[in-house]
């Protein structure tokens, strides 16, 4: 794989994570537990949509085939998506959404912090902008894990179930493949395995404070980064891409 091809893949991963998670969060708008949460979840979703545009536009530039963020978002099929499995998992109840968010935000935060030191200044710039937003996302999702974990008996149970159910999708976040290797070699991206320890540290501290039990390390589901997804992604794309597919070449 050429360095350029690896960079393109890497940027798709960053963009697709933001795109799919932003999409999932936007599904909550109007259906959340309180108006304040409609506002807050939409804020996070809007940040992620903005990050999607930056990453995917850059991916399109790197690829050099005239595809912009919209073309990449709306005209690829599921097997060409590079997001991790975690972000495409259904919203479930509010606890599941917040557990998914907390697992992801903590990783996203650590990753973007590293990427602000990328040798590629375009990456460093997007990461710096995203890091500000994600710092706030992480504060918020961590706060909800605490609230639900240490709230009522019911919320505790739901949050524990959510942490357990989603745990198997976290392993993929720290795996390093040939794309990541190429990024490490060129000084563009970090070794993802080095993020695992600080991530686990935050998980353990938060679980303890929330009176929750963090699941034991176990078998990890993997494949999203290479285009092997769950059944859920196809339905996300059916919604997301409907108009672009039904009316090819129209502008909106």
């Amino acid at each position: 794989m050429s360095d350029q091809a690896a960079l393109f893949e890497y940027l798709l991963r960053l963009g697709d994570n933001a795109l799919i998670l932003g999409h999932r969060l936007s599904e909550w708008c109007g259906h959340s537990p309180a108006l304040e949460e409609d506002l807050a979840l939409s804020n996070v979703a809007l940040d992620l949509i903005g990050q999607t545009q930056l990453w995917l536009n850059l991916a399109g530039d790197v690829e050099g085939r005239g595809r912009d963020a919209d073309k990449l978002a709306y005209l690829r099929d599921a097997r060409d998506f590079r997001n991790v499995l975690l972000v495409e998992q259904p919203n479930g109840d509010f606890a599941a959404t917040m557990a998914r968010q907390f697992y992801f935000d903590a990783w996203h935060y650590l990753l973007l912090r590293e990427l602000t030191g990328s040798k590629d200044s375009r990456i460093a710039e997007i990461a710096a902008k995203g890091l500000k937003e994600v710092t706030y996302h992480l504060e918020r999702s961590r706060e909800w894990v605490l609230r639900l974990g240490d709230g009522t008996e019911e919320s505790h149970e739901r949050m524990q179930t959510a942490l357990d159910d989603l745990w198997m999708y976290t392993g993929e976040l720290f795996e390093t493949d040939e794309v990541d290797q190429a990024m490490i070699r060129s000084g563009m991206g970090p070794d993802l395995s080095t993020l695992h320890e600080p991530w686990l540290g935050l998980m353990h501290a938060t679980a303890e404070e929330a009176t929750l039990t963090l699941p034991q390390p176990g078998w990890a589901q993997r494949g999203g980064k290479r285009g092997m997804h769950s059944e859920h992604l196809g339905y996300i794309l059916a919604d997301l891409q409907f108009l672009q597919r039904a009316y090819p070449n129209a502008t909106w």
């Binding site: 795109l19 999409h23 708008c29 545009q53 978002a73 997301l240 108009l243």
Partner: peptide, 10 residues
């Protein structure tokens, strides 16, 4: 919202 035609419209 989930079916808006572009990222900007969304």
């Amino acid at each position: 919202i989930t079916r808006a035609p572009t990222l900007e419209r969304k």
